[in-house]
Design a protein around this nucleic acid. Structure first.
Lengths: 318, 318
DNA sequence: TTGTAAGCGTTATCAA
DNA sequence: TTGATAACGCTTACAA
């Protein structure tokens, strides 16, 4: 339409030099009229370099995950990478769908997955994967973990120090075996010689405030003698506080509540939530770093280098 | 390496029929060894159909936006589209950078922008754009708005009904002129004939709980006679509650606080926040719908069809 | 069941 | 300042 070769179009569109201003204007005008837009595929084919990473998040309504995502976004942007986000809603089937798509559309995938390594590998078709919150030992993929054991240790030490012996847990992980947090809880409880076993752990119907309320109701019914609770995460812990409150229990005097996450939400509730704070942004940033290593063919960070260590933040609830 | 043509490789990799199982295995094995992965660009070039939309979010730490994002993700997935997310951190320069990238890498852009239409258009290079929370009248792009006027009307009616006459506002929008919410507030306040003017509006340093606290401190200093406050959003309103509390004011007796957003956070604070609830997921879904229309060359929805209407949720704080 | 040939829309290179 | 030609890596005919 502008009567020039496609090469000249390219020069006009890409703002290269080596083109007559008049020609350029003519080309751009034609482009406007024709509503022409360069194909990103053809471009990508010819200019390498656009890296896209897929991010699979289980639950955008839990403030924990947006913060992890923010870390991923931040680190990705620094590298000039793009991030495609998928919400898996903690559904294994949806996780697989996400991989089916992302393995074709992304150069690497980062995220939370409940599916087995084998299942993941099959859908991945060779695309590098970095698992979030899975200990580096527990997968064959790249991983960034949380030092749950260390966190639980601090948390339980704190409760025991405050005189608690009858401590329950509100679990949030519905998987085959016991999840990492529940295991760590039971280990610590044993180490302190408390008369506490599996029956002191209640599985909440969901990882939310409502789920925590329901779980706490049940725990208080089954173990009314409980004086301290550890929540699987902050949302659940806040739920426990509400349930306790509704029962007329004072916090922390009648029931001490400990969270696990360090959401800013915890500072706003009454009383403020004592919690094991996790640097979520760092988690996300580390994940991107792992992707970079994988892509470069290097060994991913492992052990404590790829760990985020929870830090006990004592507030009023425990 | 497998000694076959690339067409056969294609068949093997894409799981087509018309291939000998042995050959297929051989090819896949070679692919594994060579760590071969099809180029998504070359694929995209030849099979049309992969749609990517860019989503520009101002602040992932405000629970409002992840929920909007969830709506966008949901609607996009339904259409088989992908979503690339960018965090602009409410920074105009970052908004422009986002557009520079996304206009090349996405087929459409959805998001929050403070930049002028002209600035946006220049960076867009013809890529369709849908603005979030900008009235359809106020932009030449597609838009999905919130009926701020209607919301404010409900909110102020509620406060006035409760007997408040000295009502302040904690604004959160730092722009040239007054933002939409502030304008609506002033309009309503005038309509009710209250002796309230600009000096009753304080601009918070940031749209967060801390920002709300700071703003409320100032408002209480300048207008100690205030008995009701409208927050720019829920985060700011919660901050106001904290500031008031710290001053020894009881809520809602000494100071009524009204939020604007309907975050679930509001149900957890003490007292629970009365707020103008917005269906954030719907906002996101509508935006994707607008994109679909734009792409199809149809007129985008306009007027009230592209509006989300706030709903007053009365809880304890006002 | 396999291979050959054409073409997807762009940019780089080099010649005009 | 412009254009011709050759990639880029894949898929879809169609032929063998």
């Amino acid at each position: 339409m502008a009567g020039v070769s496609r090469q000249t179009v390219s020069r006009a569109v890409n703002d290269k030099g080596e083109i007559d201003p008049g020609t350029k204007e003519r080309v751009l005008e034609a482009a406007r009229v024709l509503d022409y837009r360069p194909s990103r595929f053809a471009r990508g084919l010819v200019r390498k370099g656009t890296v896209t990473v897929g991010l699979v998040i289980p639950d955008l309504m839990n403030p924990f995950f947006p913060e992890v995502a923010a870390g991923v976004l931040e680190a990705a942007e620094l590298r000039g990478w793009q991030v495609v986000v998928w919400d898996s809603r903690t559904d294994e089937a949806r996780e697989r769908e996400a991989l089916d798509v992302l393995s074709h559309q992304a150069d690497a995938v980062v995220g939370y997955f409940k599916n087995e390594d084998d299942v993941l590998a099959r859908r991945l078709g060779g695309v590098p994967l970095v698992l979030l919150e899975r200990g580096p030992q527990r997968t064959r993929f790249g991983a960034v973990g949380i030092d749950v054991a260390g966190g639980m240790e601090q948390g339980l030490a704190h409760l025991v120090r405050a005189g608690h012996r009858r401590i329950g847990m509100l679990d949030g992980e519905r998987s085959e075996g016991p999840g990492e947090r529940r295991e760590a809880f039971l280990r610590e409880v044993r180490r302190h010689g408390l008369a506490v076993d599996d029956s002191w752990v209640v599985l909440c119907p969901e990882q939310s405030v409502a789920g925590g309320e329901a779980g706490a109701e049940q725990l208080l019914r089954v173990r009314p003698e409980v004086t301290g609770v550890v929540g699987f995460n902050d949302l659940i812990a806040v739920g426990a506080m509400r349930a306790a409150r509704r029962r007329g229990l004072r916090i922390p005097d009648d029931l001490a509540v400990l969270g696990f996450d360090g959401l800013s939400l915890g500072e706003l509730v009454e009383p403020a939530l004592t919690t094991l704070h996790i640097d979520k942004r760092r988690l996300g940033r580390l994940a991107v770093e792992q992707v970079a290593r994988l892509r470069a063919g290097e060994e991913p960070l492992s052990g404590t280098d790829a760990w985020v260590i929870p830090e006990l933040v004592v507030r009023a609830s425990a």
